[in-house]
Design a protein around this nucleic acid. Structure first.
Length: 766
RNA sequence: GGGCGAUUAGCUCAGAUGGUUAGAGCGUUCGAUUCACAUUCGAAAGGUCACAGGUUCGAUUCCUGUAUCGCCCACCA
């Protein structure tokens, strides 16, 4: 009974267990109404100081290929914790959401779907119709993803949402392409590319997945009178050979170097030169390498050095093109035919079973065929002058390369460079750059940013008197609209290819902020504070963003990179459809609540290490959400009145100091990206210190009717500890804490999400 | 062929610039309780901190090897 004779009343909502299914959508609506995820609104309402430091994250855009999985859920949880923490600390905090068109991934999903349901190929549909289908699919997928991001409680600013293929981003992509082309870093060239015969497109080196398979290595001669035997696992390519390379110091073959032979191999006449090249290993196989310039990367480079002809004998469908019996045969068939022929001619000298890494395309699983093709590339080694640079070690106006920029941007504790957490990935990153080759950016698929290059076809017939300018108008690169030839008024035709999806993703940190325009957002929020993503896309994406930002802005794209691990099942296996061990985030949210789902993905997940997740874990944290709920109920019941001027008795003052120490520790752990430990600290304090000990002890005072001063002190302590703990827990479990906040009799701010973060200083009267 | 990570209680993981009895959760066992708790609380059992050397007064912690598992990179034809 209270002083005025009435009974304590607590909000009725507390009389039932915490119900996440009911409360979470309600809290989401509340957040939407207030719109505090938008930093402009926070400034306008005086919640955030206009000159406060900024804190920004761009959401790694999920692919619009379907729904979100646990990996996405963990990424959203981690970023939301960082964002909510900084927002409460008073930063101008922006978390910018978006989705990725994911070019090849999305197109192949839709193509497969259309093939399955309608038995139609993309060529049956045509470019426009296929694009329409993909658009529709992407929109549905996008809407689903937005719903999932909201369900997780992610406090992103929807007013700034972006899509990697929307009009603004297309403008950014075209501008970026044009500027890199003008700087000479993008060029069109005939080089060996990774061709995926199944997907009918080129792919970059990073989209190759190596699979170990059994293979046979054959040792043989081209003909009886050819002096040197060679070894290969791909005899069918030998009809494209133009040389045999040996090591310059290999005494066995000295006498043959420089000689030329004409042979007939499998009914194909070949002209073979014996050359010396240092890249050949003396001790491998016979020490002699049959050089197939058109169908092997290393051989192409040898051909460069020795000026060899490069006949193509395999086409885009992985079929033989050389005239004769092999023509039109698949490479695998042709291989058997050649081996049979070698047998029949008694040329085969050896056959060994070996393990071999076969290159396959990540998306389609097709076996990659190296082919020479005319494609667009980004040169990472070509020097250029960077007009403006804030990157340490690279002065404005210096001559540099993209590789050098990428190296300089990350690094070993230097002020102003990117810091990667965990640090060991810095080595992985640098190692990758060292091995980087030209980046092939053109793709023969339809869904994506069309290459902004236009060709004059047929050739220009100039107006009289301007004939000499014609050579310059055959090909133009423009960032704007369709060009028209000024010499003959003819229209141009745009390059049919699209850009590698990572080209547009690479611009993400600044294309989302309005670049190429000089916007306030770009000035305020770039470089972003941290890029949080999985360690599996450090090369695909992290490195490309650094490249793009360094070239176009002369800055780093983010100050920190935080790499999280992968979410695996309870046995540590990858989650996959075929294993049937997938946990669906939405289902977990439905059963246990977003708060529980978030915590289960956070606690125990140290940076860069994989997390084993089971449904039991999620269930465990649902119990915790309910525990928090009941703690609040108890405190509001037994301390329904209190006075914030009441002096603390010694014991309670000590508890307050303890709570502030906790706040300090939690802050430190978050600052050093150990949010797993931070979450664990709060969890344990609430459950095993506050609930099990502090509350239990306070019962002895309050319910036993001790001295009034002691009771008042306890009541004030309970209320203030509760408020502090709600704040500390809010970044991790935003829904249950916000719900409780809304039911507090009085509160410092209308929403907990913008309440001030507990400071480490001790309170008054302590 | 290079490189990286992991190896601590039955399971999942913390941990310390090296120092008294190595921690937590889940699980197990025993007990209490319905007076905030779709329960909760208390207690117990359980570890030669992968192995072998070295440095040291002292190592699970640092160094060097080894093993097992996992991952990444690499144009050995």
């Amino acid at each position: 009974m209270l002083k005025d004779g009435s009974f304590p009343t607590i909000p009725e909502v507390f009389l039932k267990p915490y119900n996440s299914v009911e409360r979470e959508p309600w809290v989401n609506m509340l957040w939407d109404q207030k719109g505090y995820a938008n930093p402009d609104i926070c400034i306008k309402l005086g919640i955030t100081a206009p000159d406060a430091p900024t804190y920004s994250i761009v959401l790694p855009p999920p692919n619009v290929t379907g729904t979100l999985h646990m990996g996405h859920a963990s990424m959203l949880a981690i970023q939301d914790i960082l964002i909510r923490y900084h927002r409460m600390r008073g930063y101008r905090t922006l978390w910018l959401p978006g989705t990725d068109h994911a070019a090849i991934a999305t197109q192949s999903v839709v193509e497969k779907k259309v093939m399955k349901e309608e038995k139609l190929s993309r060529h049956d549909l045509g470019r426009d119709e296929l694009l329409r289908r993909i658009q529709q699919f992407a929109t549905e997928s996008h809407d689903m993803i937005v719903g999932q991001i909201r369900a997780m409680g992610a406090s992103v600013d929807w007013t700034r949402e972006a899509f990697t293929l929307d009009a603004k981003r297309n403008h950014a992509v075209n501008t970026a392409f044009k500027r890199m082309y003008d700087a000479g870093l993008i060029y069109r060239g005939n080089r060996i590319v990774n061709w995926d015969p199944k997907g009918q497109t080129t792919i970059s080196d990073d989209e190759i997945v190596y699979e170990e398979r059994d293979a046979k290595m054959y040792t043989f001669r081209y003909s009886k009178d050819f002096p040197i035997s060679i070894s290969t696992t791909r005899p069918e390519t030998k009809v494209g050979d133009t040389a045999v390379a040996v090591h310059p110091e290999d005494e066995r073959y000295q006498q043959y170097i420089g000689k030329e032979y004409t042979v007939v191999f499998c009914d194909v006449p070949l002209h073979i030169r014996i050359i010396a090249d240092k890249s050949v290993e003396k001790d491998f196989g016979t020490g002699a390498l049959g050089v197939t310039p058109a169908h092997s990367n290393i051989d192409w480079e040898i051909a460069d050095r020795h000026d060899l002809p490069r006949p193509q004998v395999i086409n885009e469908y992985a079929k033989m093109t050389v005239p004769g019996p092999l023509e039109g045969k698949k490479v695998t068939e042709a291989r058997e035919m050649v081996v049979e022929w070698l047998h029949s001619q008694d040329l085969l000298e050896g056959e060994v079973l070996i393990k071999q890494n076969v290159s396959t395309a990540e998306r389609t699983g097709g076996i990659v065929e190296p082919l020479p093709k005319l494609q667009w590339f980004v040169s990472v080694d070509k020097p250029f002058v960077i007009p403006h640079s804030e990157i340490p070690g690279i002065p404005s106006g210096a001559s540099t390369t993209l590789k050098a920029l990428m190296h300089a941007a990350v690094g070993a504790g230097t002020e102003g460079t990117i810091k990667i957490v965990p640090e060991r990935f810095e080595r992985v990153y640098n190692n990758w750059i060292d091995n980087l080759r030209p980046w092939c950016i053109s793709r023969q698929i339809w869904y994506g940013h069309r290459i902004p290059v236009w060709y004059h076809e047929p050739k220009c017939i100039p107006k009289p008197g301007r004939e000499e300018e014609v050579a310059q108008c055959e090909m133009v690169v423009v960032s704007g609209t369709e060009p028209i030839c000024e010499h003959c008024d003819a229209k141009y035709f745009q390059d049919a290819d699209t850009l590698d999806t990572w080209f547009s993703s690479g611009l993400w940190t600044f294309s989302t902020l309005g670049w190429p325009d000089d916007t306030a957002d770009l000035r305020d929020y770039h470089p972003t504070s941290v890029l949080e993503t999985g360690y599996d896309i450090i090369f695909f994406w992290v490195a490309r963003m650094i490249l793009m930002s360094a070239f176009h802005l002369g800055t780093i794209p983010f100050k920190n990179v935080y790499l999280h691990g992968l979410v695996r099942d309870a046995q540590g296996r990858k989650m996959s459809k075929s294993l049937g061990n997938i946990l669906n985030p939405l289902e977990m949210i439905e059963k246990y609540g977003a708060d529980a789902t978030r915590l289960s993905l956070i606690v125990g997940a140290s940076p860069g290490n994989d997390l084993k997740l089971s449904e039991d874990r999620v269930r465990g944290y649902k119990h915790f959400a309910n525990k928090v709920w009941n703690v609040a109920r108890f405190v509001l019941e037994s301390a329904d009145t209190y006075n914030d001027a009441t002096p603390y008795v010694t014991e309670d003052a000590e508890i307050m100091r303890e709570v502030h120490r906790l706040a300090e520790e939690v802050s430190q752990q978050i600052d050093s990206y150990r949010i797993d430990l931070a979450a664990d600290l709060v969890y344990h304090f609430i459950w095993h210190r506050f609930a099990d000990e502090i509350i239990e002890q306070s019962k002895l005072i309050i319910k036993a009717g001790a001295e009034e001063a002691a009771i008042a002190s306890k009541q004030r302590m309970l209320r203030e500890v509760l408020v502090t703990l709600l704040k500390l827990l809010h970044p991790f479990m935003p829904f249950v804490t916000e719900t409780i906040w809304q039911n507090l009799p009085e509160k410092e701010s209308d929403l907990l999400m913008v309440a001030p973060w507990p400071s480490s200083s001790a309170t008054n009267n302590s």
